[in-house]
Structures are given as C-alpha cells and as structure tokens.
Amino acid sequence: MEETASATATAEPVAEEKATSYRYWVREATGDAAPLPAPRKLDAADLAANPVPTSLGSVWNQAGTWEEKNLNSWAHSRIKDLLGSLDPLEFSTGKASVYEVSRCSGDAFLVTVRNKKRVGYTYELSLKFKGEWLIKEENKKVKGHLEIPEFSFGELEDLEVNIRFSDDKDLSPDHKAQIRKDLKSFLSPIQEKLHVFENELKDR
C-alpha cells in the first residue's frame, strides 16, 4: 500500500509540470507576445526620405539586369503612318505614288541590360503603288508593289526595293525596265522615313 501511495505522489508533479508547460505555449500564441506593427500608408515625407533609385527597367526590375519589351504595336502603326505619307514622284515619261503599306511583317523591341537601354527591329515591307507612263504615245496606267526585303536596325543604307507589277501584259521588257528604274527613285524617301522611325524608336 505504501508503495502505491508513493508512486501516486511522484506522478502528480509531472502531470502538473506538463499542464503548466502546455498553458505557457498557449499564452505565447494567443496574445502574450509583442503585437505585429499595424500597416501604415506612406506619406510624401516617407517617400522623400526613401527615394526609389532611378532605373530604366520596370518597377520590379530596379537592378535593370534584363528586361525585354515588345514594341510591335507602336512600330507597325508608326511605319505605316510614315510610309503612307510619301510624296508622289514625277519622271521624264510618267508619275507614280505610294498609297498603302500592304504588308508590314516583323518585330521591334526594347531591351534593358544592366540598366542600359538597347532597341532593335527586323522588318520586311510591301508598298502598293500606282502610276501612269507615256508608252508608245499613249498613257498607260500601271499598278504594283514596292517590295522591301528583310532589313534590321542600322541597315538602312543597304536597303533594297524590288518592283512587282500587278498586270504587265501590255508592257514590253524595255518599258518594264524603264518603269522599274523610275520607281527605284522611291528608295531615298523610304530610307528617310525609316530613319525617322529608328530615331523615334531610340527614344521609346
């Protein structure tokens, strides 16, 4: 009997200790610990004291490590605006005008690398033309396309223009050669317009 009572007396403090330990951790979790600071909206004084560092990248990329931005929407629209406003040209035996950019295929982009901005593009174009030439003492109406093969940023001095007629069955090889030579005169104003595009792209 004495042994049993002694064992019971020994067990009671252990149970009490466990209960105390359990209640201690509950108090920690339910509010006895220091409260978290309440969120507060920054005012102008806070922003002035902690200015955001200047970066060319987005807000999430303040280090300016690498970021690429697609400029296709702006570039397509701007190229069409610029080349759709070319002045008509007159030649010794005819005249012609560009009236539509029928194809504008490519990409334009802005890349930020190590907080430095770089722009680039690659395009190929097709411009519709219409004109009138004196052929065998008769004015012949001619339509077709000025095809500009793929070109990239910084390559405008190497730009090429190829002529494709919509209907040339009434034109002799000599007449087609003369009309092609005349239409090559559009190369210089096209280059000028695309130089404007490049300069505006740099400022994006």
Rank of each mutant, 00 (worst) to 15 (best):
A19Y: 12
A19E: 13
S21W: 11
S21E: 14
R23N: 15
R23W: 11
A29N: 08
T30N: 07
D32R: 10
A33P: 02
A34Q: 08
P39F: 00
R40Y: 01
K41Y: 02
K41T: 07
L42Q: 05
D43S: 03
L47K: 13
L47V: 09
A49L: 04
N50T: 04
P51F: 05
G57I: 01
N61K: 02
N61I: 00
A63V: 01
G64I: 02
G64D: 05
E67K: 04
E68D: 03
S73T: 15
W74K: 09
H76Y: 09
K80I: 01
L82M: 10
L82D: 14
L86Y: 14
D87F: 05
F91H: 09
S92H: 03
A96C: 10
A96P: 11
S97E: 13
Y99I: 07
V101I: 09
R103C: 01
S105E: 11
S105N: 12
G106T: 06
D107C: 08
D107V: 12
F109A: 04
L110S: 14
L110W: 06
R114K: 15
R118D: 14
T122F: 10
K130W: 05
E132W: 02
W133N: 06
L134P: 08
I135H: 00
K136N: 14
E138D: 14
N139Q: 14
N139P: 07
K140R: 13
K141Y: 10
V142R: 03
V142T: 03
L146D: 06
E147D: 15
P149D: 08
E150W: 05
E155M: 11
L156F: 04
E157D: 15
E157C: 06
L159E: 07
